[in-house]
């Protein structure tokens, strides 16, 4: 489980000077931002601007070439001594973050409930409560998993396999699966981009609900209205830089940067036609 040492004075998440290159292509050119506990951050920008790469760096799916990531004031990643991190440490550190993928990536051979509980069972296998009573510990995890699936509106789908669920339902299972590990920060990588238009609503509703309950989130999205409504902070990225950041009002209604204005104009034109 992610540790919950409360360091309420500073931000929960801080990213400093993050850079990422693939071979000779620099995708992130120095990203700085911070996020307070209980707030939602929306990452917007055109495809290829580096949003997804940034999210993947937070989840240790990519190794940043430079920069630091801090959670609760503790450095959990520093590019300068990244090679010293053992696999075990990386595993522990990445549990600060939860990740919901664009294409869900549910495990096809497990039911919705098993998808949600699997990682917890594996993490707690060596814990004291498991040693005392395996059956009771498993039952507790199962009940918690069922409750979380209930909270995303899937109490009647516990025993369904992924291929028996709609895209929207699968993505809600994926959200429940991430929540089950109680991450400090929940990341969404374009959570509705793989869905048919009529199914995006149910997923966005779940994320809104999480925002209402002050879940700390980083959301990469192309749904501008949603980003506007749900986030406390918006980062507009372009070509590997954060071009503009601020509250939704500041970025969407009073953007200062030309590139932001152009991006938003093009987006809303495209969506009104």
């Amino acid at each position: 489980m992610a540790s919950n040492l409360d360091n309420s004075s500073g931000p929960l998440l801080e990213v400093r000077g993050l850079k990422k290159s693939f071979d000779n292509l620099e995708v992130l050119k120095g990203i700085d931002f911070s996020l307070n506990r209980g707030e939602a951050l929306a990452l917007i920008g055109v495809s290829g601007s580096g949003k997804t790469t940034l999210l993947r760096c937070l989840n240790f799916l990519e190794q940043p070439t430079e920069g630091q990531i801090l959670v609760n004031g503790n450095v959990i990643y520093d590019a300068q001594n990244s090679s010293m991190l053992s696999e075990r440490e990386i595993r522990k550190n990445r549990l600060h973050f939860g990740m919901v993928f664009q294409a869900f990536h549910l495990f096809p051979q497990y039911t919705a409930l098993q998808n949600v509980t699997l990682a917890r069972e594996l993490l707690e296998k060596d814990s004291e409560s498991f040693k005392r009573s395996r059956r009771q510990a498993m039952e507790e995890i199962r009940l918690e998993g069922a409750a979380i699936l209930d909270s995303v509106g899937l109490s009647d789908k516990l025993d369904y396999y992924p291929h028996q669920l709609s895209g929207g339902q699968q993505q809600r299972v994926a959200i429940a699966r991430a929540l089950m590990l109680r991450p400090d920060i929940l990341c969404f990588d374009e959570p509705t981009s793989a869905l048919d238009p009529e199914l995006t609503g149910e997923v966005l509703k779940v994320i809104r609900g999480l925002a209402d309950r002050h879940t700390t989130m980083v959301i990469v999205t192309h749904e501008m209205k949603f980003a506007h409504d749900v986030s406390d902070q918006v980062l507009f990225m372009d070509q590997g830089y954060v071009v503009e950041s601020g509250t939704p009002e500041e970025v969407f209604e009073h953007s200062k940067e030309e590139r932001t204005k152009q991006f938003l104009e093009r987006y809303f034109e495209g969506n009104n036609s």
């Binding site: 989840n59 240790f60 799916l61 595993r91 522990k92 990445r94 549990l95 973050f97 939860g98 990740m99 993928f101 990536h105 549910l106 495990f107 699997l118 990682a119 594996l122 993490l123 699966r177 991430a178 590990l181």
Partner: peptide
């Protein structure tokens, strides 16, 4: 990747 982010 799904397994990795779940700490497996």
């Amino acid at each position: 990747e799904a397994c990795a982010v779940l700490g497996m």
